[in-house]
Amino acid sequence: MDAKMKLALEKVAVEVRKDIVTAVHSAKSGHPGGSLSLTDTLTYLYFYKMNVDPKNPQDPDRDRFVLSKGHTAPALYSVLAEKGYFDKAELLKLRKTGAMLQGHPDMKHIPGVDMTTGSLGQGISTAVGMALGGKISGKGFTVYAALGDGEIQEGQVWEAAMAAAHYKLDNLVAVIDNNGLQIDGNIADVMSPYPITDKFAAFGWNVVTADAHDFDSIHAAFEKTNEKNGKPWVIVQKSVKGKGVSFMEDKASWHGSAPNDEQYAQAMEELNAIAKELEAK
């Protein structure tokens, strides 16, 4: 990836982070930690990798994205808004009565949302179904799905992993957002899913690793997934929960709580400083 594109993505990502913090602050509830850890990946997918058009969100040939870790909807909504699927003003109504933006992704009412998710473990199965549909219809689209590292404690994830390999779905790319934390604490303490890479390899997947906050690393990992070898792809990426907001970073307590006014001001100050730095580049 050239330096210009990388800088452009970094600039979008910081705007997305500001949107996430703003939306969750406005809603007074939500999941900022895992939204911020997934931000760079989602930015990369929607602003670089995926064949999507906000003016034609139902294009049957488009690439698909399934947010299996549906609670990090603020990240998806913010990226979709930045991409132009809907007005950014909607973000301020997140989770409010009568709002379009529900607490978890709702494909029926939100332009750009390809699957309704929120109950952990279910999204990846639907992504496998989409990839299977693409294969048997002879369509060339790719299905991307993002899962939490805590989410893979759900047994259904492994049923889906088995099926994706069995049906040879090399048009499926799953991302495991390995920020190491879940609501109750460290994933290794709660119920260890490690070793994640070995598990997917044993289930018949191509496994790649990446740094979730370095666009060069993300790009290198996704470029590998272009190879079609009859096996689905998984990118296990090391991420930082709450990335970009100092007091949220690496803290399980920011899994599902909103910043108060003071914390919000500080978060925006930090993110604006990053934005300013990028502008100066």
Partner: peptide, 15 residues
């Protein structure tokens, strides 16, 4: 459980 999810996903592709 996975089977039902597969069906949901494939339904979005027109099947």
């Amino acid at each position: 459980s996975n089977m039902v999810g597969l069906a949901a996903g494939i339904a979005t592709t027109g099947k």
